[in-house]
Each structure stands twice: as structure tokens, then as C-alpha cells.
Design a protein around this nucleic acid. Structure first.
Length: 475
RNA sequence: GGCCCCUUCGUCUAGCGGUCCAGGAUAUCUGGUUCUCAUCCAGAAGAUCGCGGGUUCGAAUCCCGCAGGGGUCACCA
């Protein structure tokens, strides 16, 4: 398609969770793969729900994930402004077009009166349709009353890029508020005007708007304008599997995943795979593959539950794909405090042998402490090891001493370390499960660590000998 | 209640009438990888394809009902 222009149009009411960002991602992918434009538009027409700083937060989230937009409130574009609160005059002008055509009227009722109609309909077990209460001689619209659309009810069928062919009866078409009494437009009205003026080619939005589309269709007709392609993205459900992911139920801020050390590319891969796949068995995609392969028609129609087990795995998989230098760059800021005293080449060695066991970057702190400081001897590491606990301390001391003596002679190449420890095994006739465990505990004081030989090599002779001495003394 | 959408292993999903007594991934369990934790490899277990009819030689796939779940019916988006 020519001139693909997609938009992400959040209302600034807080942070963004996985569901919202996924919708943005899909829109971004559609734009990127068609060499089109991705637009950020802030839908701040609800002055009450508007929260301070959330626009900045949304912008930061998109930028951190690399979902860069080509036009937006902070960078401008050919269709500015990109904040709806700055477009009030435009909405008024378009509202007046409808007034002139007789397709909009001032709503003379008080909110209480409307509420009364609604309750009555409910009692009668009928759907509430405002058009059943349409005033016969509405007053002239002076801007203080809400302005309502005068719909022309009819059945509709239309195409959705994700769901396919859809239809609805005229029951779905009603008179809705275009401009609120505070002068701000409703979403229902503003987005239609803006998408048209901003030449949006695809509206990619969440499923909650599906039921409203017949009303929008009626409005497009009233304006005699064509509507963009519609793509309705199914919900992302919370872990309970019932309700859609929501802030109320504790859905996490996507930026929080970044702070915990989830990679943007992993997050994006994960969100894309929540409802999308290309029909192959591929699971791990980088961003350029996603851009090349993504298709709206391949998006699942049914909702997907959010399961962070898969995210954790996927993040690890993306970490392992990174080469050392890339990973080193990303991991900056996740090192333990004590690492400050160490240089890049040492930290890179640590990273090399640790890479395979990182699931997310913030684990680095707890996993690498012993590489940077001598930890106190933890007797429980031995007492909780069944095999070691059964052996006399004197014996353990003796083995450690022998190991120490051999390692002292070593040139500390991985090869030599390996050779010496294997010799030790033969010499003492012990199983690795005993001897290596003992040495590993002595030099790391940690329940787990990278492989013994590599760890010894990276730690270096001074530290290894010192720690063995320390362990011997505490036995 | 009206209107609308959805329904395949716990989870993410493949599947567009035969190659499916349903494939992959993850999670779980088992074994291997000289020590731990991972990685990696091998294997196990796990789905009466929501239910009931129909069409067809043949249906997870097409049609019709039903049920369950969800959305919407705001001067919120």
C-alpha cells in the first residue's frame, strides 16, 4: 500500500503496560515494513483523568524500546499539533460542518436526565439508545451544551485487517457526544477528524473499540470521508486469564522491565509473539526480521494471556545471542557496587563466563559479587552439602591445602588449571562432586557460580590462594 | 438484557477438507554434559481440537445450533 501512515494515540493517564505497548508495536511494524510513517498523537481530551508527566513517560517508553515515531508532539511534523488539547479549534470547525448539515444538535438534557433515560431502558431490559430520546426542537448550540451527533441508523458490514469480515445491526448506531460541555471533543469524534487530517492509513487499536465502529462508520458517512483500514487487536489478558491486562490489576509498567534488565529487543519479540506468528516454528526474532515478516492478517483473533515465564526465557535467549561487546554495553549499570574498582577487561572476562546463566541483567549483581570482593566464609555451604558434610574437617583442610600448593605452582592458564585439578582428583582418588565442590565453595562462597576452572582463571592466583587459606582457617 | 467478538497441551501457538489418534516453543519431570547454578543435548508427560448436530468417502478445519468467556451500550479513551 502506498503512503502507509499509522499512529499510536494514547491518552496520557499514566504509564503503559504490555497490552498498550503491543498495540503501538504492531502499528510501528506496519509503518516500518511499508516504509511509511509512524505517528504519536496524544489524546488528552479528558482533563480529569490527565496525569502530570505521563506524556513524557509514554515518550520515554517508546524511545527506550526503539519505537521511534516520525511525527509527534515533541518533534512536530506536517500535521501539527499532535496534542488534541491544542486542536480544539479544528474540532469546533468540523463540528460546525455537522451542525450545518443538520447532523449534530445541542443536547438539552442534564446528565441526571440522561441517567434517568438510561435507568428506564435498563428496567425495561432494552438497550439504551439516546436516539430514542432525541429532542424534537433542540436549542441552538452555543458551546455550553454537549453537541451530539445525529446518526442515521443502518446495518453495516466492514472489513477488519485482523478479524476479517464484520457486521453489526443498526442497534449499534446511536447519537453520541461529539463535543463535551467543557468544549473538549470526545475520543469518538476527535480521532476521526485527526486520522483524516493526518492522513492515517491504518487505525490499529485495541478491541474495546470494536463495538463502536458502526457509530464511527456512520460519522464518516456524515462527513462524506473515507475511513482508514481498521485493524482490531485482541486484548492481552492478565495472568488470571479472565480480564484484560490493566493498571488497576497491577499490570507492570513496561519501563520497569527495562530497569530489571529485560532487553528491549526481547520485550519486543515477546510482545509480538503474544498474538502473532508467521506460521513457522521460529520463536526468536530480531527487530528487522519482525519488520520484514509481520502481517496484520497473521495476528491471532483470540486474546492471549500474559505469562512472564516465556518472557524470562526469551530474554535469556536474546542475551545469549549478543556478542560480548554488545552485552557489555547493555550491562553497564547492573554491576555490583564493588565492581567499580575493576577495569573493563576483567569485567568482560566475568561476563564471558557468566553470559549463559543470565536471565535478566539485574541478576548480574547477585551472580557476580564474589568476582569483585572476598565474601565471608559461609559454613552452611558445606554443611548443607550432603557429601561434604559427611567428611571430616581435617580431611577437607588437607585437600584444600594440597590444591593450594598445586595452584601456587600454576601459570594460571585455563589449560594448566584444568590439568592440575584433574591430577588432584587422581591423587586424592576423590569424585569431582566432592573435591571440586569443596574448592568451588572455598573460592566463591556462593551457592552457584560459573564453571570451576574458568572461575579460578578469571579470579587469578592471588585471590584464589587467599580464599583457599581463608576457608582452611574457618574449617 | 441488546449488539458484537472469541474458544487447539498449564501458557504462547502451528493447523485454512485427507500427510493430524494434532506439530513447535515454554513451563514441569528424567537422563547426559568431570563440581554448583545455568546453557546445550536427549527423552517423558501434557489437548476427548468448548459441546451437540449436520455436509462430506473423509472435519480441528465448512454449515447450523448451544454453552462458556470477553467487550460495549459514559459529557473515559
Amino acid at each position: 500500500m502506498d503512503n502507509v501512515r499509522t499512529r499510536f494515540a494514547p491518552s496520557p493517564t499514566g504509564y503503559m503496560h504490555v497490552g498498550g505497548v503491543r498495540t503501538a508495536l504492531f502499528a510501528w511494524l506496519v509503518a516500518k515494513q511499508a516504509n511509511g510513517k509512524f505517528i504519536l498523537r496524544i489524546e488528552d481530551t479528558d482533563t480529569e483523568r490527565h496525569t502530570e508527566g505521563s506524556e513524557e513517560h509514554i515518550v520515554q517508553t517508546l524511545k527506550t524500546l526503539g519505537l521511534n515515531y516520525d511525527e509527534g508532539p515533541d518533534i512536530g511534523g506536517n500535521f501539527s499539533p499532535y496534542r488534541q488539547s491544542e486542536r480544539l479549534a479544528i474540532y469546533k470547525e468540523w463540528a460546525n460542518k455537522l451542525v450545518e448539515k443538520g447532523r449534530a444538535y445541542a443536547d438539552p438534557y442534564t446528565p441526571q436526565e440522561v441517567e434517568g433515560f438510561r435507568n428506564k431502558a435498563k428496567e425495561e431490559k432494552k438497550p439504551f439508545l439516546f436516539r430514542d430520546y432525541r429532542p424534537e426542537n433542540p436549542p441552538r448550540w452555543d458551546g455550553t451544551q454537549p453537541l451530539r451527533f445525529r446518526c442515521e441508523p443502518k446495518d453495516y458490514s466492514w472489513h477488519d485487517e485482523i478479524i476479517g469480515e464484520l457486521s453489526a445491526t443498526k442497534e449499534a448506531v446511536d447519537d453520541f457526544i461529539l463535543i463535551k460541555s467543557d468544549g473538549y471533543p470526545t475520543y469518538n469524534f476527535a480521532h476521526i477528524v485527526d486520522d483524516y487530517l493526518m492522513q492515517i492509513s491504518h487505525i490499529i487499536r485495541a478491541q474495546e473499540f470494536l463495538a463502536s465502529i458502526p457509530r464511527y462508520l456512520n460519522l464518516y458517512e456524515a462527513f462524506s470521508i473515507e475511513h482508514p483500514a481498521f485493524a482490531t487487536v485482541p486484548f492481552v489478558l492478565g495472568p488470571d486469564g479472565k480480564k484484560k491486562l490493566s493498571k488497576r490489576d497491577g499490570a507492570k509498567d513496561v519501563l520497569e522491565y527495562i530497569t530489571e534488565g529485560y532487553l528491549p529487543e526481547a520485550l519486543i519479540n515477546f510482545m509480538a509473539s503474544l498474538g502473532w506468528n508467521d506460521g513457522t516454528t521460529q520463536e526468536i526474532y530480531d527487530i528487522s526480521e519482525l519488520i520484514a515478516k509481520f502481517k496484520l492478517s497473521d495476528v491471532q483473533k483470540s486474546p492471549a494471556k500474559f505469562d512472564d515465564k516465556r518472557l524470562i526465557w526469551m530474554n535469556g535467549a536474546h542475551i545469549r545471542r549478543l556478542d560480548l561487546d554488545e552485552l557489555y554495553k547493555k550491562v553497564e549499570g547492573f554491576w555490583p557496587e564493588a565492581s567499580k574498582a575493576y577495569d573493563e577487561s576483567y569485567k568482560k572476562k566475568v561476563l564471558t563466563i557468566l553470559k549463559d546463566r543470565l536471565k535478566y541483567l539485574s541478576e548480574l549483581k547477585s551472580l557476580t559479587g564474589f568476582f569483585f570482593e572476598d565474601l565471608r566464609v559461609k559454613p552452611e555451604l558445606i554443611s548443607q552439602d550432603k557429601k561434604l558434610d559427611a567428611i571430616d574437617n581435617k580431611q577437607l583442610q588437607e585437600w584444600l591445602l594440597t590444591a593450594r600448593q598445586s595452584l601456587e605452582q600454576s601459570d594460571f592458564s585455563l589449560e594448566d588449571i584444568t590439568k592440575r585439578l584433574n591430577n588432584l582428583l587422581a591423587q586424592t582418588k576423590q569424585q569431582p562432586a566432592i573435591l571440586f565442590s569443596l574448592i568451588r565453595i572455598a573460592i566463591t562462597q556462593a551457592p552457584s557460580s560459573p564453571g570451576l576452572f574458568e572461575t579460578i582463571e578469571v579470579l587469578g592466583k592471588d585471590r584464589v590462594l587467599k580464599r583457599i587459606d581463608l576457608q582452611i582457617a574457618k574449617l
